[in-house]
Structure formats: structure tokens, C-alpha cells
Design a protein around this nucleic acid. Structure first.
Length: 182
DNA sequence: ACGAGGATGCTCT
DNA sequence: GAGCATCCTCGTC
């Protein structure tokens, strides 16, 4: 399915369908790309764990933008985490990208990460591998240097509770594409 | 294999 | 001033 046709739906519907799709990054003359295998849905004012639960603020403003807008925020003072805004403009529905499998530009990712393994298997690692930072918040994955490309799942998808949150922690809104073993 | 603890900065109350 | 949508290292078992 073409990403631009998908992102207008609610985060809970979009999230599992992003698994198998690709995130491509063209930054500093280097192209890198991963296949998404872990995401989480956040549903704006209906979701106590969402950054937009209490309404619009300077930080979360991109979540209220048109579908496909990137919302990048700093996590624990150190890492960057990236979301793709979905749902209609004005509805702060978004999907947090938590992990991917490197497919293009592995040497660049290794240099950015400072190691050769576990390049993008976590939200902070994923942004670091792709070179995504706060300067990319508000850009569109339909036209910017960080873009969402079509792709298909390569394994079964399971739903689990979301990671690292203290509110609404039991909702199974984390989606993981398990790796085919043979 | 697993758990504890520290690094670090920004946002909102 | 509290609270994070994390990651890494180092200590145990």
C-alpha cells in the first residue's frame, strides 16, 4: 500500500501496516535505509501515554500536523526518538518507530553508532543510525530527506504492551514483526 | 542471561 | 523541580 494513502488512518490501524515498510534517509551525502520491524501507536488526547494527551504544546505541535509529519523529540536528555504523524490534520495520532533492520548504508550507520552490531534495534538507536535529530521534526516523510517507502512484511506480526511508559501500560499497542528463522 | 545504575537536557507544572 | 515513549557498561549468577 502506498504510504500516502495509509497515513490518514488512525495510529492503531496504521502502526502494524508500517512493519515491512522502509525508512530512507538522505543526510550529509549519505543514504541509509532500514526495514521497520517494531513500532508503537500513540493516540493523542485519547491516550494517557501520548505526549499530546494534555493538548498541544510547542514540543508536540508536529503531532497535530498533516499525516506524514515527523515528530522528533529528545528522550532522557540523550537520544532522539521519531514518530510519524497520522490521522487527519488536527488529530494528534502518531506512530513511534522503535526498530528496523539495516538494508542500505550499513557502514554509515556503523560510523554514526560507533559500533557494528545492534545498529537500529531500539528507538534511540534507529534515529542515530539514520542521522535523524530534532532539526528534522516537522518535516514530511512524503517529501523530505527522511522518507517512508512502501514494503511488505517478511514475517508474522504480534501485538504486545508498549515499552517504557508508566500510564496505559497494558494496552497492546506495540507491534513487532518477528524474524523468520529459516 | 540478567539487573542495577548512571549519563544527560529539555518540557511542562 | 519532577519526570521522562533510552542506551550502555559493568557487576553478579
Amino acid at each position: 500500500m502506498d504510504p500516502s494513502d495509509l497515513l490518514g488512518a488512525d495510529a492503531l490501524e496504521v502502526a502494524p501496516q508500517l512493519l515491512g515498510m522502509r525508512i530512507s534517509s538522505d543526510i550529509g551525502g549519505s543514504r541509509t535505509e532500514v526495514v521497520l520491524n517494531e513500532v508503537e501507536a500513540y493516540r493523542g488526547f485519547e491516550d494517557p501515554a501520548s505526549h499530546a494527551y494534555r493538548g498541544q504544546t510547542p514540543r508536540n505541535t508536529p503531532m497535530f500536523g498533516p499525516p506524514g509529519t515527523l515528530y522528533v523529540y529528545r528522550s532522557y536528555g540523550i537520544h532522539w526518538c521519531m514518530n510519524i504523524t497520522c490521522g487527519p490534520e488536527g488529530v494528534a495520532s502518531a506512530v513511534l518507530l522503535r526498530g528496523g533492520t539495516p538494508t542500505v548504508g550499513a557502514p554509515t550507520m556503523e560510523r554514526r553508532r560507533g559500533r557494528a552490531t545492534n545498529l537500529a534495534d531500539g528507538p534511540g538507536k534507529l534515529t542515530q543510525a539514520l542521522g535523524v535529530t530534532g532539526e528534522h521534526t516537522g518535516t514530511s516523510v512524503l517529501s523530505g530527506p527522511i522518507s517512508l517507502l512502501d514494503g511488505d512484511p517478511t514475517g508474522p506480526v504480534i501485538a504486545t504492551p508498549r515499552i517504557g511508559i508508566s500510564k496505559a501500560k497494558d494496552l497492546p499497542w506495540r507491534f513487532v514483526m518477528t524474524v523468520r528463522s529459516s
